[in-house]
Amino acid sequence: MTDPKSVLITGAGSGIGRDLTIEAVRLGYAPLIVGRTWSSLEETAQMAGSDKVAILTADVTRPEDRRRIAEAVGGRLDVLINNAGCLTVGPVGDLDDDALERMVRTNLLAPMALTREMLPALRVARGRIVNIGSVFGDIAYPYFAAYSATKFGLRGFSDAIRRELSGTGVGVTYVAPRATRTAAEAEFGALIEPLDMVLDSAERVATEAWEAIQAGRRESFPRGKERFFVKVQRLFPSLVDRSVGAQARAENTLQAIETLRRA
């Protein structure tokens, strides 16, 4: 009997990362799950219902922790899923340096650095790098400016590293879910209705992500209007400027921003 394929999943203590783990076990993978809180990771492992789930508490924004992750992975890795992320919303003028730095470190720097650390093991397995981005990495939304910037960066990194690794057998999949019902929803809940946002469950996002991984696809976008809007954004960005700009100026959106400021 062959050993199950290995997958490293960051940010696995809740939300999309938890459901990515559950789906990985269902597909026969042996996950190593990473997060900052042992109890949350343990709960994920229990929900996945497999003794093949290994747990490692680590903060992917810390170089020493990334080295510990590399040591735990060892010499071979079939799939790396850079899922850990964070979000702060609001007008750019309201965001302090800590919020900006936290998003850049977690959403962009950490995936790039961890990918670098995992490359030797991925090359051995001819494995796959999976970066969990966002539709906001294509359609830059007002009041999500800093978050959008990090996801634009992650999409650019995904394209560049895919081309850099061409011919090595290592593939790259960029997954761009729309807004998802996770704990982070509390950060932007007041904007859901004014910005006409559609939210998916973390389970649906994880299932679609694994479909893309298993098929070896270069990118995955949600089924629905967002996929069409991404195409419009790439071809006719001025149309999106007008539409989304009007949403940003609408009275109910401005009232939602005031609600967020008071929270």
Score class of each variant (00 low, 15 high):
Leu20His: 00
Arg155Lys: 11
Thr57Pro: 08
Ala110Met: 10
Tyr143His: 12
Ala45Arg: 09
Thr150Trp: 00
Arg181Thr: 12
Ala179Arg: 07
Pro120Val: 13
Glu211Pro: 01
Ala121Arg: 10
Gly93Val: 03
Pro91Gln: 11
Ala149Asp: 05
Lys231Val: 05
Ala84Trp: 02
Asp241Cys: 13
Tyr174His: 12
Leu191Asp: 03
Thr180Ile: 02
Arg67Tyr: 13
Gly224Gln: 05
Ala248Asn: 12
Gly133Leu: 01
Tyr147Lys: 05
Ser39Tyr: 08
Ala248Thr: 12
Leu199Asn: 06
Leu199Tyr: 01
Ser243Leu: 14
Phe228Thr: 13
Leu8Ile: 05
Lys225Arg: 14
Ala70Arg: 15
Leu254Pro: 10
Arg162Gln: 07
Leu87Asp: 05
Gly74Cys: 12
Ala45Ser: 11
Leu165Cys: 06
Ile213Thr: 08
Glu208Phe: 11
Ala250Asp: 11
Gly75Glu: 14
Leu165Val: 07
Ile213Lys: 02
Thr168Val: 14
Ile22Met: 10
Val89Glu: 02
Ile55Gln: 06
Pro111Thr: 09
Glu164Ser: 04
Ser50Asn: 08
Asp19Pro: 01
Ala113Phe: 15
Asp196Arg: 14
Val135Pro: 04
Gly216Asn: 06
Ser6Gln: 13
Pro31Met: 09
Val244His: 02
Ser14Leu: 02
Glu258Asn: 05
Glu251Ile: 09
Ala48Arg: 01
Leu195Val: 09
Ser40Ala: 15
Gly17Pro: 05
Gln247Asn: 10
Gln214Gly: 11
Ala215Val: 02
Val60Tyr: 00
Glu117Tyr: 10
Ala113Pro: 11
Gln247Val: 08
Met112Asp: 09
Gly153Ile: 02
Ser166Pro: 01
Val232Ala: 06
Leu199Cys: 07
Pro142Ser: 08
Phe236Cys: 13
Ala183Ile: 03
Asn83Gln: 00
Thr2Leu: 15
Glu64Pro: 12
Arg261Met: 04
Ile132Gln: 00
Trp210Gln: 01
Phe136Asn: 11
Gly133Ser: 10
Val34His: 05
Ser50Met: 03
Leu260Tyr: 08
Ala263Ser: 15
Glu43Tyr: 06
Leu80Ile: 10
Gly75Pro: 14
Phe136Glu: 08
Arg249Met: 15
Gly17Arg: 00
Ser238Val: 15
Glu43Asp: 15
Val135Asp: 04
Ser39Asn: 13
Arg218Leu: 11
Glu211Leu: 05
Leu108Gln: 00
Ser40Val: 07
Ile33Asn: 05
Gly74Phe: 12
Val198Ser: 13
Arg178Lys: 14
Gly74Lys: 11
Gly90Val: 09
Ile81Trp: 05
Gly28Glu: 06
Arg163Phe: 07
Glu219Trp: 06
Arg68Ile: 04
Phe136Asp: 06
Lys231Thr: 08
Gly156Pro: 03
Ser134Pro: 00
Ala30Cys: 05
Leu154Gly: 05
Thr180Val: 09
Ala48Asp: 02
Ile16Ser: 01
Ile132Asn: 00
Tyr143Pro: 02
Gly93Ile: 08
Arg262Gly: 09
Thr10Gln: 03
Ala145Trp: 12
Ala246Leu: 12
Leu235Gly: 06
Arg204Glu: 13
Gly133Tyr: 06
Cys86Pro: 00
Asp78Asn: 11
Ala209Gly: 03
Val92Glu: 15
Ser220Val: 11
